[in-house]
């Protein structure tokens, strides 16, 4: 009977089993983005869907991140072929309308899709409150380390990525993020950001 060898074998198995048990508590598909906390990648993209009311921007206009300093920017990547985007569409529009009078800018970025399909999709959903832009070659999507759609980024007045959300986003969650950013900029007037667009 070689109990020494047996106990070594058993002891060797313990850390492996423990590792697996720990691994089961993790989601292998959840990959932490390095972006939050860093300066948001800049972009200047052309509007293809104007949005509505006071939030509207003319089609063909360029939306550039640099010109939105001092504003909270909510950047939502979506596509007409994306099933989960249907779930968040109304929530995003509602949140955009809620902050229409505040320094908050919502921007939709169409991902791997054509403008016509995008406008059709918006029409079928009964409109979109805020403008959407085209991202040729998905350059901006790659700059933002996109895995798929929908993904939503919240950028603060200083142009830093504060939060990244994967999958359909809810109005409540957006409200929480935006309110805390607006509150922070309100109590810190010593560091006023530049004025809004142009």
């Amino acid at each position: 009977m070689n109990w020494r060898r047996a106990s070594i074998a058993v002891l060797g198995a313990v850390p492996v089993i423990a590792l697996f048990a720990w691994g089961l508590t993790r989601d292998p598909n959840e990959i932490v983005s390095p972006l939050p906390g860093r300066q948001a990648p800049t972009f200047a993209l052309g509007v293809f869907a104007s949005g509505e009311g006071t939030l509207a921007r003319p089609v063909g206009d360029t939306i550039a991140l640099d010109r939105m300093r001092g504003q909270v920017v909510v950047l939502n990547f979506w596509a007409s072929w994306c099933l989960a985007c249907l779930d968040e569409h109304a929530e995003l529009s509602a949140a955009a309308l809620r902050y229409a009078e505040r320094p908050v800018q919502f921007v939709g970025v169409l991902y791997n899709d054509v403008a016509a399909a995008g406008t059709n999709w918006i029409a079928r959903q009964g409109g979109q409150a805020y403008p959407s832009v085209l991202d040729p070659g998905a350059r901006t999507a790659i700059d933002y380390g996109l895995y798929g759609v929908p993904e939503t980024f919240v950028i603060d007045g200083a142009g830093r990525v504060v939060y990244k959300h994967i999958g359909p986003v809810s109005a409540a969650l957006l409200r929480m993020k935006i309110d805390s950013l607006l509150a922070a900029s309100a109590v810190a007037p010593a560091a006023p950001a530049l004025d809004g667009p142009r």
């Binding site: 791997n112 070659g137 998905a138 350059r139 999507a141 790659i142 380390g145 996109l146 895995y147 798929g148």
Partner: peptide, 22 residues
């Protein structure tokens, strides 16, 4: 990023092609 395990060289997906051009 969208096709677990494949490189952007091998993957036929659109994002991989775009990343290749980046």
């Amino acid at each position: 990023p969208v096709c677990q395990g494949l490189s952007i060289q091998d993957s036929p997906s659109e994002l991989a092609q775009q990343m290749r051009s980046v």
